[in-house]
Design a protein around this nucleic acid. Structure first.
Length: 650
DNA sequence: TTAGGGTTAG
């Protein structure tokens, strides 16, 4: 047996004593061997080298030791992942096979976890396949690895086989299998699988485990099934801060920002023993950003400072986004400037913030500054910067960036990137070029890409291309009412009333309804919401009266109502009455009544701002001498003195 | 031996 004596003997533990024998020099790492050391000594030495992080010497010693212990391999595997060295990991694996440990289920579990860490899923699978004694740990490790790698269906198939051979699941299995349901593209079929597993959990009495139930809340959240998620959450016998955070995140991510803030309020008021943490705060900030609830966001920022959560990177990135999305770009920039360290997500937050405010060149500048600072762009960096180009009409710059993605940064364009390019070209009325991009795509264009094209067709009223995109969209997303409405809008603008009727019939036949646009405004920390067809809102009469008065006055100043988007073949006066009731005009009127002199009116809209509201708000900003900030579904419009920051390009 | 929620875009 041979042991190595490290030159840094002071680092070694007391058991690593060396006999006074003539020593040999290792050619590789200049450490001295002790030929009399026992296997036990060698194992101890390798283990201590691993614990010290000295993987090179541990491996060198391993190559001379034919009888390493199970625990030695365990520490070596851990050390390889800590040092992020796949090559060393494979060396350990080979050694382990040569020494007859290939059927050890404990080490198989460790190896599967190790290969999962290195994203080497084929190797993880091979280890599982070769292990005959498949304990629940081995199964769980593979389920975890496959779920993380996005192979959800494979996990579910194996889970079925596992059940059929009578191999029992444990509480860990359920969490991994639930995760598998959302680790796949085939959402519809796997939602049903998730529901089946939910039933298994109830049947086998696992519904008291907080981890499993929280994973279940998260699974329903990721499928967009908010009511199922809240049902599970409400029935949980024990909830902790993670369960609350999962439910708040569910609301924040699924367009229920009001509910997210309300649940956070409940957490603060009704649970004395639970303290929100950084993860909770990120979702709460997202909800504030979605509602443009600046005052609430400021309060949350104060809470974050008091709790010392202001140095956590995801929290700061969410703060940057919150301020920018509440119209306070300069505050977002200030938070970013004060960061001690930044990661790619922080940079992406700032890039997209400038993007939604229409500062395309500035967004490109930040993107370049990020690279100059040694931060490699991520796929989302490109989505952000291409989006910024699109809002600002920077077509050539966007095309260059798109090209550089693969050439300079080795990132293959995904569906999201193609959707950005289609949007960029489409908005700039280069629709044929946009269609050409889709034709030449190397991957299957999904609904996002066709949706971008249809959106651009709506802006430039291109009936022929819109029909082409719609055929694909109605097939890919048969229940998305928004696509039908866009096509109907295009027909209406083109005066093709038969087409409008046809699409409306299709919408009805599929049991779908047009989702009305909604606008919000925050006044004295309270959020007021408006929809155009709101008969129960007690303020409606007063707001309508004000809008009629304003409309008459503005017409004298040159305002001409744009009624071409009304989906009915009606007389001009009737169409005018309909567009005057749009939700953002109601919010503007409410803001005029309730804002202080010199105060900015901030409005958020759930859809794209319509042309009439855009023109109306420009006039109001001039003749009421008001600064109005409207965030629509895509970007900001900053109205001041009769002009909009988008330059009428949106 | 293994587990749950979050960051940026669309």
């Amino acid at each position: 047996m041979w042991a190595f004596q490290s030159p840094k003997t002071t680092l070694l533990p007391s058991h690593a004593t060396f006999l006074p024998r003539p020593s040999l020099k290792s050619p590789i790492c200049s450490i001295t061997l002790n030929p009399t050391a026992s296997t036990a000594d060698n194992n101890k030495l390798i283990q201590s080298l691993c614990k010290q992080g000295n993987l090179t010497q541990a491996l060198e010693l391993l190559s001379h030791e034919p009888n390493p212990a199970q625990h030695t391999y365990e520490l070596l595997i851990l050390s390889c992942t800590r040092q992020n060295s796949l090559l060393d990991a494979q060396r350990v694996h080979r050694h382990l096979l040569e020494n007859g440990f290939d059927q050890d289920p404990f080490l198989a579990t460790k190896l599967i976890n190790m290969y999962s860490f290195f994203d080497s899923i084929d190797n993880a699978r091979k280890v599982f396949d070769k292990t005959r004694s498949r304990t629940i740990y081995v199964y769980n490790a593979l389920f975890r690895a496959l779920s993380l790698a996005g192979h959800g269906e494979e996990v579910l198939n194996m889970y079925r086989r596992m059940n059929s051979i009578g191999s029992p699941s444990d509480r860990f299995t359920y969490t991994y299998v639930l995760k598998a349901c959302v680790a796949s593209e085939c959402f519809v079929s796997l939602l049903n699988k998730g529901k089946e597993i939910h039933a298994h959990i109830l049947r086998h009495g696992y519904d008291g485990y907080v981890h499993i139930m929280t994973t279940l809340v998260d699974m329903y959240a990721k499928f967009g099934c908010v009511s199922n998620a809240s049902c599970v959450f409400n029935q949980m016998p024990v909830k902790n801060v993670v369960s609350w955070s999962a439910m708040i995140a569910c609301y924040a991510k699924n367009g229920k920002a009001f509910e997210a803030l309300e649940l956070f309020r409940e957490l603060m008021l009704e649970t004395q023993d639970l303290c929100p943490n950084s993860v909770t705060m990120v979702s709460v900030l997202q909800a504030c950003a979605a509602l443009a609830a600046l005052e609430q966001g400021r309060l949350i920022h104060g809470y974050i400072l008091r709790k010392g959560l202001d140095s956590i990177l995801p929290v700061i990135s969410a703060l940057v986004t919150m301020y920018a999305r509440c119209g306070k770009l300069e505050l977002g920039q200030r938070v970013f400037d004060q960061m001690d360290k930044r990661d790619v997500v922080s940079w992406n937050s700032l890039i997209s913030s400038y993007g939604v405010h229409g500062f395309g060149k500035k967004a490109i500048g930040i993107f370049e500054e990020m690279i100059y600072n040694g931060v490699e762009p991520s796929p989302i960096s490109f989505v952000s910067v291409l989006g910024a180009c699109s809002h600002a009409g920077l077509v050539d710059e966007g095309k260059m960036l798109f090209k550089s993605m693969h050439v300079a940064h080795g990132i293959c364009p995904s569906v999201e990137h193609y959707a950005c390019m289609v949007d960029l070209l489409g908005r700039a009325n280069r629709l044929e070029e946009a269609a050409k991009i889709i034709e030449n795509m190397r991957i299957e264009p999904g609904p996002k890409v066709w949706g971008s094209l249809l959106g651009s067709c709506r802006i430039h009223c291109n009936v022929e291309l819109a029909e082409r995109a719609s055929i694909r969209l109605f097939d890919l997303e048969p229940t998305n009412a928004g696509n039908y409405v866009l096509l109907a809008d295009i027909y209406a603008e083109a005066g093709m009333w038969d087409g409008v009727k046809r699409v409306k019939k299709l919408l009805e036949a599929r049991g779908l309804q047009k989702v009305p646009g909604r606008s919000w405004i925050e006044v004295k920390r309270k959020i007021y919401s408006f929809v155009s067809v709101d008969e129960v809102n007690p303020r409606m009469e007063q707001l309508h009266a004000l809008l009629v008065k304003l409309s008459m006055e503005l017409k004298e100043e040159g305002y001409v109502p744009q009624t071409k988007v009304v989906l009915y073949d009606l007389k001009a006066a009737e169409k005018e009455r309909i567009v005057l009731g749009h939700s953002e005009k109601l919010a503007v009127a409410f803001g005029l009544i309730n804002s202080s002199k010199g105060g900015v009116i901030r409005i958020t809209k759930s859809l794209r701002l319509c042309e009439d509201c855009h023109s109306f708000t420009k006039f109001i900003s001039k003749f009421a001498n008001k600064e109005i900030l409207v965030r629509d579904v895509n970007r900001f419009h900053h109205f001041r003195d009769g002009v909009c920051s988008c330059g009428d390009y949106w």
